[in-house]
């Protein structure tokens, strides 16, 4: 069962600039795909320290089963410079979106009420398994990987 969760690299290397609505759609989908939203920025040192960990995880799993979105909080003006450089230099294959939603106060609570706004922050969600976990700050890589294995969904049998 675990084997079916493993996949090949994600295809999307382009940085999309998105609005919060885009993330909300992903969050509101009732499906058995686990979604990992990881909030980071190129200027955030602790984020950069764990970026490759998330990159490695995201390319380990089949995106139909566990879908990673690396949500960059970089400024729009830096999309084609710092952000692009980091993606290219680190050969990031995960899906990266730049969230262009400067009124942070309007959406931080919609990700998690306990989130203070500090990055990195990570939300793991599986609607069908009714599981949701939110991490503020760097994750413990071992326990995060273990949690994710548990999230790898099982199709509900009739």
């Amino acid at each position: 069962m675990y084997g079916t969760c493993l996949g090949t690299y994600g295809q999307n290397r382009k940085v999309e600039i998105v609005k919060f609505e885009h993330l909300q759609k992903v969050l509101n989908q009732v499906s058995d795909t686990t979604v990992v939203l990881h909030f980071w920025a190129t200027w955030c040192r602790p984020c950069m320290e764990e970026l490759l960990f998330f990159e490695e995880l995201s390319t380990t799993y089949n995106p139909q089963k566990i879908k990673f979105i690396l949500v960059s909080m970089d400024f729009v003006k830096d999309a084609e410079t710092s952000l692009k450089n980091v993606i290219e230099r680190n050969k990031i294959k995960s899906k990266v979106v730049l969230l262009d939603e400067p009124d942070y106060n309007s959406w931080i609570d919609l990700i998690d009420k306990e989130w203070s706004g500090t990055i990195p922050a990570t939300l793991v969600l599986n609607a069908n398994l009714r599981k949701r976990k939110f991490y503020e700050g760097k994750v413990n890589m071992t326990s995060f990987s273990d949690e994710l294995k548990k999230m790898c969904p099982v199709t509900i049998q009739n």
């Binding site: 609607a127 009714r130 976990k133 503020e136 994750v139 326990s143």
Partner: peptide, 19 residues
């Protein structure tokens, strides 16, 4: 239940993992 809990954003969060 799934729809409702997603509407209300699931009340239980990863308390133990949150710094």
């Amino acid at each position: 239940g799934v729809v409702l809990s997603s509407l209300f954003g699931f009340t239980q969060s990863g308390e133990e993992n949150r710094q």
